[in-house]
Simulated scan of single mutants.
Amino acid sequence: MEKPPTILMVVAVALTNGEGRFLLQRRPAGKQHGGLWEFPGGKVEPGETPRAALVREVNEELGIALDPGAIQPAAFADGAAATHEGGIVILFYSCRRWQGKPVATDGATIGWFAPGEAARLAMPPLDIELLAQLSGGGG
């Protein structure tokens, strides 16, 4: 019997400030999607819940602590993954409360963008889809 492909589960978040802007990070050159802007997040590790993965990844990437009670499901996107044969599913959340001030790590750049500003940035395809859903434009 043929083994079904494994899906890569990823989480991402729209950290939204009180001015209707959300945080995006620009991937460092030399990494997959280098130079493109994306929502913060990362892979769900074995035995980890999506919310726990999101709290961990955002802390690693931005040095902030998400308030688990403030993490709300927002959307999802799926598609082919360049480095994973079974495809990728991104569970997308929104969050308005956290502790600390976000800072870029690992050579990334961060910025706060209104939806219209973000739509003009170079982004990976699934982040474009998530942005459209976040902005109410569907996918």
Score class of each variant (00 low, 15 high):
E60T: 10
F113W: 15
E48T: 04
L62K: 04
A75V: 04
V58I: 08
G63P: 01
V13E: 00
I64L: 04
A14N: 12
P68F: 14
E38W: 05
L36H: 08
E45L: 08
I128G: 13
P28I: 04
G107A: 09
P125T: 03
A122H: 09
L8V: 12
A104Q: 06
G100Y: 04
T83R: 15
G79A: 10
V11R: 04
A82P: 01
A132F: 02
P4E: 09
P40K: 01
T49D: 08
R51E: 15
A122M: 13
P50Y: 00
P115S: 07
E48G: 06
L24I: 03
A65W: 07
A81K: 06
E85Q: 15
P124A: 15
I64K: 08
F22G: 03
F39H: 09
L121F: 05
V103Y: 06
E61S: 09
G136E: 03
G79E: 03
P50K: 00
G111M: 10
G41L: 00
N59R: 15
G86D: 14
K43S: 09
T83P: 05
A52L: 11
E85Y: 09
W98D: 03
L131C: 02
A77W: 06
A14M: 06
L126W: 03
F113V: 00
P28A: 10
F39I: 10
Q32L: 13
R56W: 12
D67V: 09
T49P: 05
A81P: 00
T49G: 15
D78E: 15
L24Y: 05
A80V: 06
T83A: 13
R56N: 13
G79D: 12
W112S: 02
A14G: 07
I110V: 14
G35T: 07
R21M: 10
F22V: 08
P124G: 15
L36P: 01
G34W: 08
A119Q: 13
T49Q: 07
G87K: 10
A53R: 09
G87N: 12
V44C: 01
Q25Y: 14
E19F: 04
L62S: 07
V10H: 02
T6G: 02
W98G: 10
A14L: 06
K31C: 10
E19K: 15
A132T: 01
V103G: 10
W98A: 00
W37I: 11
D67K: 07
A75N: 05
V13D: 00
A75G: 14
A82Q: 14
G116W: 13
